[in-house]
Computed example of a mutant assay.
Amino acid sequence: MKKVYLLLLALGSATVVFGQKMEYSAQLNSGLSRFTGESSTKTTVMVLNDTWGSAPMVINPYGNRYNVTYGGSLQAQFVAAGGFILGTQAGYEQLRTQAKIDRAHGFWSHSSSMTHPADGKAVIIADYINLQPYIGWRIKQSPIDLDLTLGSDIGFSQQMKERSEATLEDGTEFKTRIDRNESITDFRPRLGITGYHGHFGLSLSYAHGIKNYKANMEGANMKLYTQVIRAGLLYRL
């Protein structure tokens, strides 16, 4: 035990002498997310109940319209004397995407038409445990520490669900509630900038996925990726 104390004392002394330090912080963030790629869509169609009584469904719910996202994380980073940064974040977040539903297709009421104007939205909600290893550089120090970082989100999908709704011209509403069994590990290269003043900090980052959500579709060359813009508030210990 005495040797452990001596080792910790030596490491602490080295940190002081060489100006190196560990920083720990907690972060709450919000932002915008969407799908990109040729398989994403701005507008989509809801298929109504047919003559066999099947439930309504959305043709393509993977929207490339931005929707609000939120999350929280813990961060630890090593800052060298010259400004080099090596760190990681770990947290939980919920990403949301959206597509506009402008039409409904199928038999409805006494209409002879199979296509009906509609107003609604298709929303995909995906929960992730997120890990972000990164490197960076402290480009400005005291009284404001300004960090530029480059890393990658590694998002471990926990659940993915669709929550869609559409209203026809006569006021009739249709809703879908689907829990999807897609288990995905998403990789998103991420560029960020964070400024600290004392204990508090503000962050801004951009991440774009390289994991194709449709890679396992047979007989088609479909592409679907995530894109996330985040702004966060940090408290540095």
Results as ranks from 00 to 15, higher is better:
Ile59Val: 13
Ile59His: 04
Asn60Pro: 03
Asn60Thr: 02
Asn60Ala: 02
Asn60Gln: 02
Asn60Gly: 05
Pro61Asn: 03
Pro61Trp: 04
Pro61Cys: 05
Tyr62Val: 01
Tyr62Asn: 00
Tyr62Glu: 01
Tyr62Met: 00
Gly63Asn: 01
Gly63Thr: 01
Asn64Phe: 09
Arg65Glu: 03
Arg65Pro: 00
Arg65Ser: 06
Tyr66Met: 14
Tyr66Thr: 12
Asn67Ser: 09
Asn67Gln: 15
Asn67Arg: 07
Asn67Leu: 04
Val68Ala: 14
Val68Thr: 15
Val68His: 15
Thr69Gln: 04
Gly71Ala: 02
Gly71Asp: 03
Gly71Cys: 00
Gly71Lys: 00
Gly71Met: 00
Gly72Thr: 10
Ser73Thr: 02
Ser73Trp: 00
Leu74Ser: 08
Leu74Gln: 11
Leu74Asp: 13
Gln75Thr: 10
Gln75Ile: 01
Gln75Leu: 11
Gln77Ile: 11
Phe78Asn: 06
Phe78Tyr: 11
Val79His: 08
Val79Arg: 13
Val79Met: 15
Ala80Glu: 08
Ala80His: 14
Ala80Trp: 05
Gly82Leu: 12
Gly83Ile: 02
Gly83Glu: 02
Gly83Thr: 05
Phe84Met: 07
Phe84Asp: 13
Phe84Val: 12
Ile85Leu: 05
Leu86Phe: 13
Gly87Phe: 10
Gln89Trp: 14
Gln89Asp: 13
Gln89His: 15
Ala90Val: 04
Ala90Leu: 11
Ala90Glu: 06
Ala90Arg: 09
Ala90Met: 09
Ala90Ser: 08
Gly91Cys: 04
Gly91Ile: 05
Gly91Val: 03
Tyr92Met: 04
Tyr92Cys: 02
Glu93Tyr: 08
Glu93Ile: 01
Glu93Arg: 05
Gln94Arg: 07
Gln94Pro: 07
Gln94Met: 11
Gln94Ala: 12
Gln94His: 13
Gln94Lys: 12
Leu95Cys: 01
Leu95Phe: 06
Arg96Thr: 13
Thr97Ile: 03
Thr97Gly: 04
Thr97Tyr: 03
Thr97Asp: 07
Thr97Gln: 08
Gln98Met: 15
Gln98Ile: 06
Gln98Ala: 08
Ala99Gly: 01
Ala99Ser: 03
Ile101Ala: 07
Ile101Met: 08
Ile101Asn: 12
Ile101His: 13
Asp102Cys: 00
Asp102Gly: 06
Arg103Trp: 09
Arg103Asp: 05
Arg103Glu: 01
Arg103Cys: 04
Arg103Gly: 01
Arg103Asn: 07
Arg103Lys: 12
Ala104Arg: 09
Ala104Glu: 09
Ala104His: 14
His105Asn: 09
His105Glu: 10
His105Arg: 15
Gly106His: 06
Gly106Gln: 02
Phe107Arg: 06
Trp108Asn: 12
Ser109Arg: 15
Ser109Asp: 07
Ser109Gly: 15
His110Ala: 10
His110Trp: 11
